[in-house]
Design a protein around this nucleic acid. Structure first.
Lengths: 301, 301
DNA sequence: TGACTCTATGGAAGTGCTTCCATGAAAGTA
DNA sequence: TACTTTCATGGAAGCACTTCCATAGAGTCA
């Protein structure tokens, strides 16, 4: 049996309250006493029980993340940022994987349950109104990343503006025939970033007085390969685009590959703009996420 | 304040012990009573406190994973497998990211600490003897995945044999000049899979009576790009190899790219064999990991 | 030097569960 | 009908902390 706070107290010849104070860096302990307690802890190899601490504090000291485990760099980047922020605050990070819409629902129910977490971060999945009601009922703070719901805090790069900027960039370069390669606008998980970027793309075209050509608009599975196929189709058009805005880096790479396969070169023959998932994610995860976490911590106090 | 087990007991007009039994599916409860308790739980919106449960049981009901968060597909695949297995047992999965050797050490100390987890899974990082002593001192079960230590359980695909098989395959195809593109054999994290695959490669060559040419052996950073550079160097050799065994899929892709850049084709001009991270990982994560988890659970009881 | 404040410290009461042990009633046996 | 068994159930004692409250001794000020 591992030693408890009582063992330490006895050994250091102090009360348990004092040991607890030492453990929590309370200033209300004389230096000599603190040293004695610390020595006792060391000698006994004592480790405080996290569970007991949590019961007593009535906090879980953990935050949960629900996310689809994709290999996408953006996923890993965000997770990395979250992990860093969480670790810093000596919280634990509990992750849940969601791979199917069914599992999604189960997860939304189970993860916040049993007061297991003080806060929840949901990545790339948009909860329904019902889900949100449920969260509120449990009064658990929820933050959305790369997803949206009117009633919840969220951390998203402004994808609409991002899409608009990317497209404007191409327009400034003199392009008039700009295609868009992105994900399905609607999908069972409720991803929205690609849709937003498309909206930004559309806005930019309209503002510039350019046509929004349906044949330049490709939406499909988020993959290297699919983007490649789309690009080939675009190049086969009687009037192929002179530039492509790809909704993610993964897709941009696919476009580039297709272009190269044709013996063409970018950007001489055709320009490609990607959406820098990785940069964006680093920003997202490391700096912006910071605040919601902090906030979640505060709210849970 | 959320309702406690006492509130439920009172409402259902039973003792707290009975409520606890209902919560834990004990058979020692009359059906009618169980129904009453369940109703009370429902009406009160009661959620048992996980922390209290854990303190009482003196288990944490959580398992930790220490891993380097790389974008590598293998990482995500393994994590996915672990998550699935953990979720199934209603344990929590606490992840820790390790990105530098320093953080590695800190993590090895902190993660198992404070009885926060019942078991630890370490991915792709080989602990030192000292680390292992520490784990044993804490009497925390540790399982290694894609890493190794004589005193610890581990789950690894046999990389030596895998490397040997891949190389034999190339030999059977008639190749005699086979190069190896892999990671640094030694690295600060203690990754070993590439080294093992190299050993398999070497064994296969020796068994076949082929030369182990130092100029055919490339080791460097694990990246698409580095592999591409290596391949170009290999192709520039006065006597270039006719086949390449790449230690991972990522690297194999780099090789293929370099080959294509030269206007060559695979497998006509030069064969490339990768190491199917993803397949391997799926196997690893989903089926093999299963057992150690179960075991870890058992041992922690 | 006495009254008063301040500080380090201990005791004890929570925190919300699990579970051992005791109990009374129903059921089974002779 | 008397006497075990069995079984559902409640009470209370943990589990390992935190923290409020009380206290004794040491300072402080007049």
């Amino acid at each position: 049996m591992s030693p408890t706070i009582y063992d330490v107290a006895e050994r250091a010849d102090v009360g348990i309250a004092t040991v607890s104070r030492v453990l929590n860096d309370s200033p209300r302990v004389r230096e000599t006493t603190r040293a004695r307690v610390l020595a006792a802890i060391e000698e006994l190899g004592y480790r405080p029980s996290a569970s007991a601490r949590r019961t007593s504090l009535r906090k879980t000291l953990a935050i949960g993340v629900i996310a689809p485990f994709f290999t996408r760099p953006s996923f890993v980047e965000r997770l990395r940022g979250i992990e860093a922020a969480v670790a810093e605050r000596e919280f634990d990070l509990i992750v849940h994987n969601v791979e199917s819409p069914e599992k999604r629902d189960a997860c939304f129910r189970k993860a916040p349950r049993r007061q297991r977490v003080d806060g929840l971060i949901i990545m790339s999945l948009s909860p329904t109104d019902e889900d949100v009601r449920y969260f509120q009922e449990l009064s658990i703070p929820v933050v959305l990343v790369d997803a949206r719901h009117p009633a919840l805090n969220r951390v998203v790069v402004d994808d609409v503006t991002g899409g608009e900027l990317a497209t404007q960039h191409l327009i400034k370069l003199g392009h008039e025939r700009i295609a868009f390669v992105g994900d399905h606008l609607e999908n069972p998980f409720g991803f929205i970033s690609s849709r937003d970027r498309f909206n930004g793309y559309r806005t930019a075209l309209i503002k510039a007085g350019l046509d929004l050509r349906p044949d330049y608009h490709c939406q499909g599975e988020h993959s290297h390969f699919q983007a490649q196929v789309f690009t080939e189709e675009l190049l086969d058009l009687p009037e192929p685009p002179t530039a492509i805005f790809a909704s993610s880096d993964t897709q941009a790479l696919g476009c580039l590959e297709a272009i190269r396969k044709r013996g063409l070169h970018s950007p001489e023959d055709i320009s490609v703009v990607g959406y820098d998932d990785i940069e964006v994610a680093a920003y997202l995860g490391l700096s912006t996420i910071h605040q919601p976490l902090y906030e979640a911590g505060l709210r849970s106090v």
